[in-house]
Design a protein around this nucleic acid. Structure first.
Lengths: 228, 228
DNA sequence: TATAAATGTTAGACTTACCTAACAAATTTT
DNA sequence: AAAATTTGTTAGGTAAGTCTAACATTTATA
């Protein structure tokens, strides 16, 4: 069984390599920075994780997850995101408050707990930040995060999160009739001033590019085409 | 801020002294046994907690909580019991499974989380084991745990928990129309065979003393009289 | 009340996870 | 390709929480 600290290193490695862009390996300093520890500390842990066969690592080389390490990392990510969803949906936490508490909750050891929580939340696909939640088998649909700004004209998409967590923005979002899971149709893009016309609940309104790039959406049509 | 380990020692001390009977102090070996560590280990921690002014302790003497220590202990107990209630009521854990997971959850540090959880559960007064849940101010109504067997004839009480957690017993409880929060009226006690006649949902039935002593109840009438 | 038993303490050691300071290797820049 | 910079490693140290083994004190008992 991996300790909380070990879990954090595996999660960091997962986020640096698999989730962020297409990098396959991570350097010691980078891992240390991600976790807020000194490189010397990370170095100790990398050697330990290698011994446990959870990562691949060679002196002066880059690190990457083994199959076993990836499995643990994904479980931690799953727990983190399910807890965030719980805090947001059931306990009415705001977008920006969920992360910190989920950092603690993600280390609770109980397979039963997390699977029951998943069922209680009705098997959500995304957390409040728009990140994909791995399923109980550890399968992670890598849906590329897309903002409203990048969505194609004519497509219908679903809001799954926000980037900006400021109260001002969230109130604005609310005022526009938007919320998590709200369906949005892209009507048109004005070439003149770049404003985006969207249809929400049969009402058409215009939003700025700055607004649009802070709304994270999922598009069934696009995903099907990309075969993810 | 107290570490998880420190919290566990304070909680143990609380349970040995304040909650269990009317003992006011606890010995080092007793505390060690409660926590599953060696006396030498507990001894180190007692010295540390004394330094932090969380307990009263003198060499070769008994230990007890200071006001500050008691406050922390009660917060941990509150968290433990709220989580147990959540697991039982919302996630459909069984009575005997909740404790182990709650042992982990009780150390999550977030005042906001626990107060929101309390509200979400609608401010429960008892956990699934029938133990009182301290409120957000740290006030703990010490309601003496009472079994159905001890309830007075003619009184109406409410089932708040069970002692026996076996599947056989729980099925029996269910079959009798009993459940958490179910109102029970004590109709009579047969002197001949000690069977207890109870009324549940307008239906009268008889239960054995052995059955009755495994049902934990709360009685508004009795509590008012005792002024707790 | 003297001795045996139970209870409590101290000293020294181990593990985990962190640090600083010094050094080594790899990569970039000139 | 040599020098400078960045990146990574090692050695030695600290604090928390645990242990064992030896010792001290208190309490119970014969």
């Amino acid at each position: 069984m991996a300790s909380n600290t070990e879990e954090n290193y595996l999660k960091a490695l997962f986020q640096i390599t698999i989730e962020s862009g297409n990098k396959q390996e991570a350097g010691t300093n980078e891992i240390a920075a991600q976790l807020g520890v000194k490189p010397a500390t990370a170095n100790d842990m990398l050697k330990k994780l290698k011994l446990k066969k959870l990562i691949q690592y060679e002196k002066y080389g880059k690190s990457s997850l083994t199959k076993a390490g990836k499995k643990i990392a994904i479980e931690v990510v799953r727990k983190h995101r399910l807890w965030e969803t719980f805090l947001f949906e059931k306990l009415a936490f705001s977008w920006d408050e969920v992360h910190e508490v989920a950092e603690q909750l993600e280390h609770i050891q109980s397979k039963k707990l997390i699977d029951k929580l998943d069922a209680y939340l009705q098997y959500p696909a995304f957390d409040p930040h728009g990140d994909t939640i791995p399923n109980a088998k550890g399968e992670l649909t890598i849906t590329l995060k897309k903002t409203l700004l990048e969505e194609e004209i004519g497509h219908q998409c679903k809001m799954i999160g926000v980037k900006d967590n400021s109260a001002a923005f969230l109130q604005y979002v609310n005022k526009m009739g938007l919320a998590i899971n709200q369906t949005i149709k892209i009507v048109a893009r004005q070439a003149f001033d770049d404003l985006l016309e969207i249809e929400v609940n049969k009402k058409v309104s215009s939003v700025s590019p700055k607004f649009a790039e802070n709304i994270i959406v999922e598009c069934a049509t696009c995903n099907k085409r990309n075969n993810v």
